[in-house]
Computed example of a mutant assay.
Amino acid sequence: MSSSTSAPTASSQPVWLVTGASSGLGLAVAIEAAKTATVVALGRDQHGLEVAAKAGCRTVQLDLRASADHISTVLADVVKTAGRVDVLVNAAGYILEGAVEETSEQELEDIFTTNVFAPIRLARAVLPHMRQRGSGVIFNVAGIGGFSGSPNAGAYCSSKAALATLTEALQRETGPLGVRVCLVQLGHFRTSFLKAGHRLHTSHHIADYDPVLEPLRKAFNGLNGQQPGDPVKAAKALVDIVGWGIDKIPMLLALGSDVPAAELSAHEAKRKAMLTHEKITNSTDLEA
């Protein structure tokens, strides 16, 4: 869980801090933002960070499963080195396949640490500086998986749902202080997300679940490499949106044409389920 940074130099350009910059959307955002800003790219994979470095990014190798104190120390060094952080993009995340019962305590802790706790820790690290300046932008990337609990991906879906809810609270808390927090609901994008090495599986296997989960495993296999979203276009959209100015940055941004239908479908299913037993629901209040 060590960290290493490139040479320190303060910059007059806007400073972006991007997690998950070793691959996928994070790498695409780092490369696009580096065209007009100073970018500090965080990632666990050194090879991916070399790609970001060639694009002009400063790099910090950091495992987001590190302790909160370690992340705070690394971020303090980043702020000291770069002078400030104007934009934080929490793009890091991964999927863990398996039934809820198959998921070990360590696997559950690891995915929540990466997908939920790390983004909040990073936000806590930069917010004092943003509050002091009365300006700053944070993008928290949740996604289509958080709209409902999918079999074979319960840990992932619940982590993204948790990040979305925390983000909604954070944006209401920081908005009056001049800090804009945007919840990015990401659709299916053609990245390495579902490839071997990125797509993890629970170490424990329970055969009873195979008839339930096997169709989902095959669906994931079929989706890999066929996702409709272009990560380069998504990255450009985020960079362009920052140029609109803080007051015009949306609090909720769907990236991917598959997102609105997925979220509306999830909401409609819950609405129908809730109203099915409306008589029982309304019978539980105290008598006037």
Rank of each mutant, 00 (worst) to 15 (best):
D69W: 00
H47D: 14
T81S: 15
G24I: 00
T81P: 02
E50T: 11
L122N: 07
A52F: 06
D86S: 05
A125S: 12
Q106I: 11
L64Y: 01
E50K: 09
G24Y: 01
I111W: 04
L88S: 10
G146H: 13
V87Q: 10
L127F: 08
V79N: 04
L64V: 01
S23V: 00
T73H: 12
G56I: 11
L62R: 00
S23F: 00
R65G: 14
K80E: 15
A68H: 05
Q132K: 13
I31H: 10
L49A: 05
S23E: 06
A53I: 05
V87P: 07
E97P: 01
V137M: 09
Y156P: 05
N115R: 05
A68E: 14
A66D: 14
L64F: 03
P151K: 05
F139S: 03
V79S: 02
A162L: 12
A123L: 12
Q106D: 14
A55Q: 15
A37K: 00
F117G: 07
Q132H: 14
A82W: 02
I71W: 02
V78E: 04
A142D: 12
E50Y: 05
D110W: 04
T38M: 11
V78T: 01
A30I: 00
R131C: 11
I111D: 08
G146E: 12
G56C: 10
I71Q: 12
L27V: 00
V141F: 08
L75F: 09
A76D: 13
N115E: 09
P128G: 11
T73M: 08
F117Y: 14
V100R: 05
Q132V: 09
L42R: 02
H129C: 07
V40C: 10
D45S: 13
T81G: 14
Y94L: 06
N152S: 11
A41R: 02
N140P: 06
D63R: 01
S72L: 02
N140L: 04
G154W: 06
V29I: 13
D77C: 01
L49C: 03
S150Y: 14
V89A: 12
L122T: 07
D86P: 02
G93F: 02
S159I: 05
A142R: 01
N115Q: 10
K160R: 14
T38L: 08
A99F: 11
Q61G: 07
A41G: 08
G43A: 10
A82Y: 03
R44H: 15
E107R: 00
V141K: 00
R121N: 12
N152Y: 15
A55Y: 15
T59N: 06
R44T: 07
T113R: 09
A37H: 15
V126D: 09
T59I: 13
T103R: 02
G83A: 03
V141M: 05
V137T: 14
M130W: 10
V85L: 04
Q61C: 06
A91I: 01
A123M: 13
V51P: 08
V126T: 10
T113P: 05
A52S: 12
R84G: 12
V40S: 07
G56V: 08
E105T: 15
D86A: 04
A53E: 15
N152W: 11
A155T: 07
V29K: 01
L127A: 11
